[in-house]
Write a protein that binds this DNA or RNA. Sequence first.
DNA 1: TCAGACTTCTTGTACCAACAAGTTGAGCAA
DNA 2: TTGCTCAACTTGTTGGTACAAGAAGTCTGA
Lengths: 257, 257
Amino acid sequence: MSKQPKYQQVADALRREIDNGTYGPGSRLPSEAELSARFDASRNTVRSGLNLLVSQGLISSSQGLGYAVRKHEVFKLNASRFENLNFPQNGDAYSTDVTSAGRRPHQTFRVEVTTTPGHIAEQLKVEPESRAVLRFCHRFVDDVPWSTQATYYPDWLVQEAPRLTEPGDIAEGTTRYLSSLGIEQVGYADEILTRMPTPEEARLLEIGAGVPVLIWTRTGYSGEQPIRYTITTFRGDLNRMNYEIGDLSARDENEAK
Amino acid sequence: MSKQPKYQQVADALRREIDNGTYGPGSRLPSEAELSARFDASRNTVRSGLNLLVSQGLISSSQGLGYAVRKHEVFKLNASRFENLNFPQNGDAYSTDVTSAGRRPHQTFRVEVTTTPGHIAEQLKVEPESRAVLRFCHRFVDDVPWSTQATYYPDWLVQEAPRLTEPGDIAEGTTRYLSSLGIEQVGYADEILTRMPTPEEARLLEIGAGVPVLIWTRTGYSGEQPIRYTITTFRGDLNRMNYEIGDLSARDENEAK
DNA sequence: TCAGACTTCTTGTACCAACAAGTTGAGCAA
DNA sequence: TTGCTCAACTTGTTGGTACAAGAAGTCTGA
């Protein structure tokens, strides 16, 4: 009959009950002691089962409070509208998106001149360890850490566009600033991947166990030349990325009605 | 000094050694007993530390063999070239991509007529629980499970395009088949998200602990009307998704040289 | 030589105990 | 009422033990 280990049975039973709504999002689970009695298992065995669900992102635990079913409140990001010449990308694309969703944006900003790590140099088609400007952004929504964004600009571009090294935001947006210097971003290549966070990422984004990160990189081109490389790291439990390609005008008109 | 719990110290130390190359990808870690001696900790404590790294996707364990550093062999998917009128999407887009990478593709295929779950009905703009055709695909690369793909077609479309219910591939591709009936896919909206796999997904994709899934959904439109909704679930450790937007012809010509 | 048993390594499961530490609410004192 | 202490809950950490089970090489007997 029960070939499965006991801690698996505990995890499966609890997952079923969460799925069917016995324990709704945000609600508390019975304590380890109660579950221990219910499943006739030791506290350690029950903990193994709970740990499984935690690492699967289904529940979370906090000392003194107990276990709770995780809530999923996702935020939709529009990646294809994010950055084009009509609506230049800058910090404000994020601010307006968040504000229009009725949330409160907050970000910290930092600029530094560094050497380019190998994999980034490759994207920017410059020598490894050569100079680059890094503009780094740590973003919050309603004081919850949301994402980090690091954009690298190659040194040759900084020579032409010195304001990139200015600390603080460039008011009109970097894309528009570069455009005013005759450097047009004509296209970009995006890459999206997912993995579990590094401890550093988990710290910055305050990610609990069992939550992956969504990593979005964008290489912007002006002609054949890469002019920027942006790495954005999102909390996987709070974000979805959207792309719209082709002619969706008929749909959008219909939506508006 | 050591405010951190001992199992954390174990995890941190091992992570450092993996990062700096002491243990390279695929190599075996010392056994629990050896680590127990090295860190002067009980086997349980060492196991806690190792478990942390497993659930973070850094290492994997197998009974009898020990712990090993996880290898990351990623496969790049091009989402923006995947499906357009010049290169209609069908099962072969996957096959050709895999073959051209020198790998061996394999897939199982299934067609069924079902009722539409609520969130899918919403995307297709049809009544919940109404009839729809589901074309389901389970894909492998070199016999390793790679992704699952489920595409839903609304009932009204199936009336016009009866071959959608045919079991087995449609040789010329569904997009081209629909096009031949005057139903052109003029645009699509993509959504990408990540989370930890459900037990069902973990089973189908043979995902170990600490590996998230990358979920890619695409709604295809013909005018204002959604004509298909595709959900593709990838193993997060093996896939990256690429989008190319705008004019990258200058870059591509440069690459070719 | 070869097949099978056996030993020895590994991790997996399950239990017990004890104390640390975070959270909450009851109850007491000013 | 207000503010504080403290008891009673919760999970977190660390130690121990025992046996199950998978993997791999050794040793033995045909």
